[in-house]
Structure formats: C-alpha cells, structure tokens
C-alpha cells in the first residue's frame, strides 16, 4: 500500500476495496455525510481499535471494530442502527490484510444488523502508524424502557454472565507472543445486541448491562459495584471457563477473571426474573452459555467477593497495571 495524500489513488482504493465491502446505499451516495432517520431516544458511542496482531484466531481488527461499538450500544439498552468507520492505514500495509479486514467489517455489520453509513480513510507515512487503526462510532435506538446502568443495580439482583470467559484475551496474547498452545484458543468476539434485545423483548427488568472488555469480568464487576455503591458476591464454581483457556491461564500465571473478552457481558436483573432472562439469552448463540454467577448485596459499598472452595470468600480487585506477586 502506497497511497499518500488524497486524490485519485485514494479514490481508487476506496472504490475498489472499501465501498464494495461495506455495500450500503448511503455510502454509495458519495456524499460528505449520511442522512439518517431516527425516532425516539438514541444512544451514541465511539471507540478506536489498535489491537495487535491485526488478525487472530476467531477474528481480526475489523470484526472487533464493528462488534465493539455495536456491543457498547447494546449495553446502553439500544438497538444498533448506524456505524461510521475511520481507517488510518500505514504505508506498506499489505492490501490482502486490508481486504480481509474490510470484508470482516462488512460481514460483522450484516451479522449485527447495523449499517455502515459513513466513513473516512487516511494513509499515513511508514512509521507514523502501526499498520492499521480503526475508529468506529455508532448510533442506536434505545429500546430499554428505563435507563440501564449501575445506578439501577439493587440488592437481590442476580448477576448473569453471558458465557465462558477469557478466550479473547488469551487468543490475542497467544497470537501476539507466539505461544503455541496445543488447542488453539479462538476469540469470543461476537455481536451481543440480539441477545440483549431478547431480554427486553421478554419483558425482563434489566437494571444494568456491561460488556466485559479490558480488565475482564473482575474490572467490570468492581466498576459496577463502586458506581452502584453496592456489594457483589459471585461464586467461583459458577463461572464458566473453557478447560484449555484455564490451562493456558494457569501456565502463563494469569487470572481468567482479569482476562479480556469481546463477546461477553453481564446483566443485572431482579433475582425473581433471572430464570426468564436466562431463557431469553440462551436462544442467541453468543449467550447460549448464559448462567447466574452471583448476586448483589446491600453492603459494603464497592466490594466484590468471589466464593471459592470451602466457601471462603476472596476480594476481587481491578487489574492495576502488571500483576506483581504478593506472597512474601
């Protein structure tokens, strides 16, 4: 790839490679912006994606860039509708990689039921970027009857986890560092909107939603407990972790609770509605393994505990930089 500046070369790149991949009438209008129709309250979010490597088992930076933003909209209790895409390409990026990434984005958008309606592409000199960066912004239509968020969390709420944890972070690490695990770990990267919307469709009172990205389950729960001013207790035995992921975590000395995910979320719903929520979630592939992992308690504010073997509770902390041994 050697398409500095703007002009013809860039136009050819976009026409030949990017626009077909995204295949949207709004893009085809070749206008400065998209004209959209929305009714009712909307959710709006943006995120930038800089993951290395660009391609990993179970996905690539393109899938992440679509799912990440779509999932953030879903966590607001919104149906994702429109996405913008900003690509920053480094001179020298193999065209094959670019082709794959934009194809993934198109496919991911289709799978998520979202339209890529506006975009921008820049090529920068070699050394000014690391291969490829993507920014996406998304607009969704709010379907939650009341705002979802930590403020809605109440004692007695069930904590539902949508599936097994740790696969994305371990897949990325294995691909980046070249760890040759016996069983290849695939990222859990997936669109979560359909599963989340099913909760609302089933009439579940959803108090809070949070996708588990960086910092893993531990960080998500601590953030929610702190913001809600409540305590959360989870049960170690209830948290699904695939055997090969667990083995990899043990070998590398990592805590699966702190490993990143890209297709997992937690939902806080009234305890009495937990079964109904599970029923709704399990109909959708990325949440087919949904389980209740714990419950919200009144106090102490901000404390997350995990009940392990013998019923001993340990305190779960947010990941702060590198994990350093504490045992003296």
């Amino acid at each position: 790839l050697a398409h500095g500046g703007g002009g013809r070369a860039m136009a050819r790149l976009i026409d030949a490679l990017i626009r077909p991949a995204f295949a949207d009438a709004e893009l085809d209008r070749r206008h400065d912006g998209a004209l959209l129709a929305l009714d009712g309250p909307a959710a709006f979010t943006t995120d930038s994606y800089v993951v290395r490597p660009l391609v990993f088992p179970g996905g690539d930076i393109g899938t992440l860039a679509v799912h990440g933003t779509v999932n953030d909209l879903a966590m607001c209790g919104a149906r994702p509708r429109y996405l913008s895409v900003g690509l920053i390409l480094e001179e020298g990026l193999p065209l094959a990689v670019l082709r794959r990434v934009v194809a993934s984005m198109g496919a991911a958008a289709t799978a998520s039921g979202v339209r890529l309606v506006t975009g921008d592409t820049k090529v920068v000199e070699r050394g000014k970027a690391d291969g490829l960066f993507i920014n996406t912004a998304g607009i969704g239509q709010v379907v939650a009857p009341v705002p979802v968020g930590p403020a809605g969390v109440e004692p007695g709420d069930a904590v539902i986890l949508s599936g097994d944890i740790g696969r994305h972070g371990m897949a990325i690490m294995a691909a980046r560092e070249g760890f040759g695990f016996e069983t290849v770990i695939e990222s859990d990267c997936a669109p979560l909107a359909e599963a989340v919307l099913a909760l609302f469709a089933a009439g579940v009172t959803v108090h809070c939603l949070r996708d588990l990205t960086r910092g893993g389950l531990a960080s998500a729960l601590v953030e929610i407990a702190e913001a809600a001013g409540r305590a959360i207790g989870i049960d170690e035995a209830a948290i699904p972790v695939a055997d090969h992921v667990l083995a990899a975590c043990e070998l590398l000395g990592l805590d699966p609770l702190q490993v990143a995910n890209e297709g997992r979320f937690v939902a806080f719903v009234p305890g009495a509605e937990a079964e109904r929520a599970l029923g709704a979630l399990r109909c959708h592939a990325p949440a087919s393994g949904a389980v209740v992992i714990g419950a919200v308690k009144e106090a102490p504010a901000g404390e997350v505990t995990c009940r392990g073997a013998l019923g001993v509770e340990r305190i779960i902390d947010m990941l702060s930089g590198e994990q350093l041994p504490r045992i003296c």
């Binding site: 560092e177 695990f181 070998l251 590398l252 590198e322 994990q323 350093l324």
Partner: peptide, 24 residues
C-alpha cells in the same frame, strides 16, 4: 515439553515474567 516451550517464549518475550532480586 509444550509447557517448556511456551514458558520459554514467555521468558524470551518478557511477558508476565517479572524480574526479581528475591532470595526466597
């Protein structure tokens, strides 16, 4: 053998292999 290889990579890449001056 597989574990050895992976730990070798871990050491070579310096991933979660903090240096220590620990006598223990």
């Amino acid at each position: 053998p597989g574990e050895r290889t992976i730990l070798g990579t871990l050491l070579a890449r310096g991933v979660n292999a903090p240096p220590t001056s620990s006598m223990g």
